[in-house]
Amino acid sequence: MPDVTARGLRFHVQECEGDGPVVVFLHGLVIDNLSSFYYTLAAPVAAAGAHSVLYDMRGHGRSERPATGYSVQDSVADLFAVLDALGHDRVHLVANSFGGVIALNAALLRPDRVAGLALIEAHGPAERSFWHEDLLNTLAKSALLLEYERTADQLLDSGQRRLGRIAATADALLNGTTLMDDLAAAEPVRPAVLAALDRPVLAIYGQHSDVADAGRLLLRHVPNCTLHTLTGHAHTVLQEGTAEILEVLLPWLAHHAAAPALAGAAR
């Protein structure tokens, strides 16, 4: 089933069949989409017995790109609407990078529907309001370059189709939607709120990650949190540390989702 309609929008969905617990994958921002999980964790998690669900968030990948509705609250509402459309009630969430903000807020809003969280290089936990200044600055610079240097057209004209298309998607999101403004307004998940999160959390961060502080806050404040640090890695652990993530993730899912078959499948 490649597409579902939720909140009036068309979402691109991929599912890898399994009889076990439902595991939903939440990708990162702008140039990311469901393919980063499709080629790394989704198939091994499904092969181990879980039911993997992946979708492209609004504006990303092959989902519809409306001009508005990119707040964290909208993204959380999109998640539950997609799950409603698919008929999934209680799920585990696996999130990468900014997907972590969506996962944390979803678990805080609907703990009855989120059984556990695996957060890979997740943004979100922070103690101060201007928590994502670096991320916003990076995106703002990209937005200007894409608009004034016509990066996408230049790449496409020079025959670099893949990069050109990625740049065109980034341009459309950063310069053609409210995503930047909506992101700027996003609040961090503060320590007092983390302390109230009564769901098991597996936090996975690279040793040299620029968001490692978020991992330390999760470990310090979430009552039931395990932190795994990947030695020698930075932010891109999903692609570069896939095997090591699976060694940690599959036993963790097996334990918390009460699906023992998952534990033996780590490779």
Binding site: Q14, N33, L34, S35, S36, Y38, Y39, D56, G61, R62, Q160, R161, R162, R165, I166
Partner: peptide, 8 residues
Amino acid sequence: ALESIEFV
């Protein structure tokens, strides 16, 4: 020059 999401 397929994007990875196009291969999906």
